[in-house]
Every structure is written in C-alpha cells, then in structure tokens.
Design a protein around this nucleic acid. Structure first.
Lengths: 243, 243
DNA sequence: GTCTCGTAAATGTATATACAAATATATACA
DNA sequence: TGTATATATTTGTATATACATTTACGAGAC
C-alpha cells in the first residue's frame, strides 16, 4: 500500500528543499510556473498549486509580470496558538474549574476607554473569573464586554461555559488581537492566583471584533511559574528580498 | 477606476459572512462546491479556490466524501509574529545598536543539555548580546549554537549582523519553536537591561531546526515595562511594539 | 439479522486552454 | 536625448472536463 503522493506535493517539496539548500539567492527569481511544469511534466495549473501553497504560508511572494521570490519576511512566521483556557486544560487531560468573582455592569475605567473604543464612564459589562487547572489557579480573567453587542452577557452561567465560549457562540469567526507582556501584579491578584510574593505574571490582552464591532476586551493573567505559551512552526525569519 | 473583484473572492466573502451570521450551525454541512458554483454561476474550480483559501486559514475543514464544515478549533488562529529584533527596531524607524558581552566555546550546562539535544558538558558555541533600541536595552540574548552545524559561528562580527541574521542566511526556511513565559531575573541581567529592581521580564525560548538538525537555542529576555508581543489575526499588525 | 457489494455523493487531483493584468524591456518617434 | 508605444514575459483568474478517492447508504445474498 504505497501511498500515492500528489504531483503538486512533489513540486512543493522540491521548492522547499531548494530554498533550504540555497539553490536560489535572495532576490533571485525562482523558476516560472511554466518551467516547473515542464521540469516535472505537469500542466501549469499543477505547478501553480504548489507555488500558491507556499505563498499562502508566507514562504514565497509573487509579483505579476515579474516572477516568484523568496519572502523577505514571513507573513505569519512563528506563531503562538492561544486558545480557550478550558479547552487547553481539558486537552491536557486535567480537570477544569472556575471561581466567578464578579459579574456586573460597571462604568468604563478611564484607562480602558481607548482600548474599548468607548467614552470613559459609559456602562460596560464586567466579569472577573479565576480559572483553575486541577484546582490550582492558572488564569485570572477580567473581561469587559460591550453591552450593545452582547446584551445577554450578564445572564449566563459561567460555571457551565467560559465567557470566551459564550461569545464565540454569539460571534463566530471573530477578528482577534493579542498583546503579550510580563508584569507584576497587586496583592489582590497575588492572592487570587496563589502566587509567591513578587512572582511575575504573563499578561495577555485580548480584543475581539465581529466585523467592525468591538465585542470585548479581556485581560488574562497567568502565573509566570505555572504557565507558558508555546508553538512550533515551519519556516522562520529568513531574510530575502525581490528586486 | 472601479477595481475588478475576482469572483472567487465574492464566494469566499459569502462564506465568511455566512459563518458570522451563523447561517450554518456547527457540525452542519456547508454548500457543496457544485452548489456554490451554480449559485454564483461559476465553474466548480472557482468555487473550489474560495473554499480552499478558507481551509488553508483554518476556518473550514473538508472531508472527502462528506463535505465542508466549520472548523471546531481554529488550527493556528491567533498568532504572535516574532521576528528579528534589529529588523523590528529598524521598521519602527529607531536606531539599532548592540553590545557583545561574550562569544566563546563553552561546555553545555546540564540544565540546557536536553533543550539542545546534546550531552551535558559537550562543547557548544555561546554568544551573549544586549540589543538596544535608541541606545536603550530592549533584549538580552543568550544563544547556544551547535558547533557541528555552524562551525564559523565564532568568527562573525555580530555588530554587523545579529546571530539570528547570520544563521538565517546559513539555514533558510528553518523550523522554529517558541516558548514564552514571564520570569524574574538575577541582578546581572537586571543591570544589563537597566531594569528597575524586581521588574519582570518576558522570556522567549527559541529553538531552530534545519530539517532534523537542531541549529541553536536562544533565550531572549525583554524588559517587561518596555516590550510587548502583539498580533492581530485577519488584519494588519503582526509585530512587537514598545510602549 | 448480518455481511458484502454496488452506487451515489462529495471532495481531491490533474489537464488543456483562454484571456486579463502587471511588469520590464526594446523600439519608434519627436 | 527624452518620451511614448509596442512587445514579450509572467502571474492572476476562470472554464470545462476527467478521473480518483473517500464516505455513507441501501440493496441483495446468505
């Protein structure tokens, strides 16, 4: 049962190997679709499919009329997948639980008004939750939600589903922005996350849009000693340029 | 000058909008390629192109013989682009400079042997550099390099190019693994990065492979108060920015 | 009732072709 | 010399078609 490998995959592999072996210098033009098609004895559209895959992954860039080149900067090079915390915990085979600290309508704090695209003092829904992995705090979540877009936000039971899960159901295919930083936290958070004194935290800011509507802004705090973001991706900071 | 929009883009947009409007429930089958083709009056291959784009981005999944479905978990949705620090600084229009602290051959520390895939005590190249943005320390880099794969590593001038740039030139299209965490640092690093006492740091572990060969392992430390990783999925962004 | 097999449906791969659009280069002209 | 124009090259989009592959489902044999 030798598996049949599609021919465009062979062309794709040939291109990837060629890049690794530096068969083409940065700025140099790679073979045209026609050249690849003839070399491999396939039609132009088959060669096109191989090239397009690498373009989609940010490995190559093409310019109409010019040719195909190695991408100078990978579009979405190394990536850190950030998922729903409860999914993440359950995928590790651990027990997820949570503590709901607050669920209320508050006035937008001045320092968050810009983030939320609202005027300071406007009403906004706020939920504060500690997420736990095997009973150990792993994330403190403070989420601000635009009441216009999610009017039922306060009526949910966030022991059954996380706010993120609720909002994902309301707004599929959101645009998401993440900012990651390392911070110190105050004593309240220190207690909630059961941190050692002075222990740093990984802070994720997460904003989600649906179309042009800003749905919510969340501050997600993880104990530095108990949490990491990680990822492995193909392709990285190669330096090459057309022209 | 009304721009001509390719027809497959219209189909793609139609599918995305349909997902946002929850026209199809999770688990439900989306229209087949033939159905889309007839609905839009195009050939099946044109509809295929639209669907394939969304599959490549992890929005949809397809099963031969079954149909097309909304992806339960976005394969690699939110992403944090991590690039070469000097490129990043120069793109911000700032001045990049660096301080070379060390460039030598050392024995693999026991705690890093596993990371490097080497036995403890084996010889390894080590470079330690402080990268500066407008003269202000922004990254401390400690990089361990396999001497078998990059024998000329110690002979480079790392004021002219960063170790990452040198290695990227040697090994295009690497596989890259990142781990991000928040840590406290010792007084040496505190002084090198000009940190306030007790200021947390964002620590990036970066390992790069070429094929199956592990090329290098780098620990990249950023001042928590001066550095963030950020990204926006399905939009611009995709870089790091200081405050 | 259970198993096997055929068929329908849907996606996966591949071809040959055609024309559009963008780019660089060569050419003609003032 | 400088500028406009034509041309060749290359990628972008689109079609119509063909056959392969996977899956579910139902019909028929036992």
């Amino acid at each position: 049962m030798s598996k049949v490998i599609p021919r465009y995959k062979a062309i794709r592999a040939h291109l990837e190997q060629g890049i690794r072996e530096r068969r083409w210098c940065p700025g140099e033009r790679l073979p045209t679709e026609m050249a690849l098609a003839q070399e491999f004895g396939v039609s132009r559209m088959t060669a096109n499919k191989a090239v397009q895959e690498l373009v989609a992954e940010g490995v190559l860039v093409r310019h109409q009329g010019l040719g195909t080149f190695i991408a100078e900067v990978r579009a979405e090079s190394p990536l850190v997948g950030i998922r729903n915390i409860s999914d993440e915990i359950q995928e590790r085979g651990h027990v997820y639980s949570s503590r709901l600290l607050e669920l209320s309508e508050v006035a937008v704090p001045a320092e968050l008004a810009a983030q939320l695209g609202m005027v300071a003092g406007a009403p906004v829904f706020l939920s504060r939750i500690v997420h736990q992995e095997n009973g150990v705090p792993i994330q403190y979540e403070a989420r601000y939600v635009n009441p216009l877009h999610a009017p039922g936000y306060l009526d949910q039971d966030y022991r059954q589903q996380t706010p993120n899960q609720y909002l994902s159901g309301l707004f599929p295919l959101p645009d998401v922005e993440h900012v990651v930083e390392a911070v110190r936290v105050d004593v309240e958070i220190e207690a909630l996350l059961q941190l050692e004194p002075g222990e740093p935290c990984l802070l994720l800011h997460r904003r989600t849009w649906s179309g042009s509507k800003l749905i919510s802004y969340a501050r997600l705090l993880h104990p530095g000693s108990r949490y990491r973001l990680s990822s492995r991706a193909a392709g990285g900071g190669g330096a090459s340029a057309p022209r």
